[in-house]
Amino acid sequence: SSEEQMCGTHRETKKIFCEVDRSLLCLLCSSSQEHRYHRHRPIEWAA
């Protein structure tokens, strides 16, 4: 659903897949302290 594609923290669309956590992130989350050094892919890659 579209609600699942929205970041609850930043209200941004989740467009990035974190390979380490195997989760979807928004651009702001992907550059956060928690995920900054993880490997990321565009969401299309994970589909």
Rank of each mutant, 00 (worst) to 15 (best):
S1A: 05
S1I: 07
S2W: 02
S2H: 09
S2M: 05
E3F: 07
E3C: 13
E3Q: 12
E3Y: 03
E3K: 07
E4P: 09
E4K: 04
E4R: 08
E4V: 11
Q5S: 14
Q5W: 05
M6H: 09
M6V: 09
C7A: 00
G8P: 14
G8D: 12
G8E: 13
G8M: 14
T9S: 10
T9G: 04
T9P: 04
H10Q: 02
E12K: 15
E12Y: 11
E12M: 10
E12C: 12
E12F: 12
T13E: 12
T13L: 09
K14H: 02
K14W: 05
K14Y: 04
K15N: 15
K15Q: 08
I16G: 04
I16L: 06
I16N: 02
F17A: 03
F17L: 11
F17T: 05
E19I: 04
V20D: 14
D21G: 06
D21C: 14
D21Y: 11
R22H: 08
R22K: 15
R22D: 11
S23Y: 00
S23A: 12
S23D: 11
S23E: 14
S23C: 11
L24V: 10
L24K: 06
L25M: 04
L25G: 03
L25N: 04
C26I: 00
L27S: 13
L27H: 15
L27M: 15
L27W: 12
L27A: 14
L28S: 14
C29E: 03
C29G: 02
C29K: 01
S30D: 08
S30Q: 02
S30A: 15
S31T: 07
S31Q: 10
S31H: 05
S31Y: 08
S32C: 06
S32K: 05
S32G: 12
Q33M: 08
Q33C: 01
Q33D: 08
E34G: 05
E34N: 06
E34F: 02
E34M: 05
H35V: 00
H35E: 00
H35C: 03
H35I: 01
R36V: 09
R36A: 13
R36W: 03
R36L: 10
Y37F: 11
Y37D: 14
H38L: 00
R39G: 08
H40P: 01
H40N: 00
H40T: 01
H40S: 07
R41A: 11
R41T: 07
P42K: 14
I43W: 06
I43D: 15
I43Y: 15
I43F: 15
E44D: 11
E44W: 03
E44Y: 03
E44V: 03
W45K: 15
W45D: 15
W45P: 15
W45M: 15
W45N: 15
A46S: 13
A46C: 11
A47N: 12
A47V: 14
